[in-house]
Design a protein around this nucleic acid. Structure first.
Lengths: 94, 94
DNA sequence: TTAACAAATGAACATATATTCATATGAATA
DNA sequence: TATTCATATGAATATATGTTCATTTGTTAA
């Protein structure tokens, strides 16, 4: 049984996955952790745009950050990210 | 390996789940199939708003429709809907 | 065949949100 | 400690999208 409030939280969570920039960031981080600027270069977007989206991903506990010298390395927070993406892919494959 | 285009499709799919009205509709349909008006009453929304959202859900193959007398019954298209929602819930539970 | 009714549609509006641009922040290292 | 550099932030703008309202569509049942 799901409560009304939980459904809103669920929608919020999926909304985070429902943006191409964010999901490309998540995909980029699937292989290895990366710093903000490298992600920006990799996705051919500005540092600012990536930083804004990383904040949302971090708020929703989909990525985590750790400092490495001057840079901050981002990586996937846990395996749910992969699982949720995989389920989505399975749905699309039909 | 995921292609760029597939990532856009994934974002589109999750965008569908990322709206509270749509996810409430999906949740409502988890128990049993329902007609448009009953969904509207159940969620305390207009028939039009529900119909608009059902169209998006149908386009993305998350629900399917079948006629029953004057009404049209909607139901979940397949088990991926449940699985994706369940994965989202698991993430939230932490 | 036609009246009635449920659902679908389209335009308009309001709101949410992604990106840009300029700038601030803050930790590292010289 | 001062400077440098990567990242974060805030305001502004443009765009996307959800709901409403009025109306149309299309099927059922009389």
């Amino acid at each position: 049984m799901i409560h009304e409030e939980e459904l809103y939280d669920l929608a919020e969570l999926f909304k985070v996955f429902g943006d191409s920039t964010r999901i490309r960031i998540l995909y980029t981080l699937m292989d290895n952790e990366m710093c903000v600027n490298d992600i920006a270069v990799s996705l051919n977007m500005t540092q600012s745009a990536i930083s804004h989206q990383l904040r949302i991903l971090k708020q929703n506990k989909l990525v985590k950050a750790s400092r490495d010298g001057k840079s901050i390395l981002y990586s996937l927070a846990d395996d749910h990210v992969r699982t949720i993406i995989d389920q989505g892919r399975e749905h699309l494959e039909e």
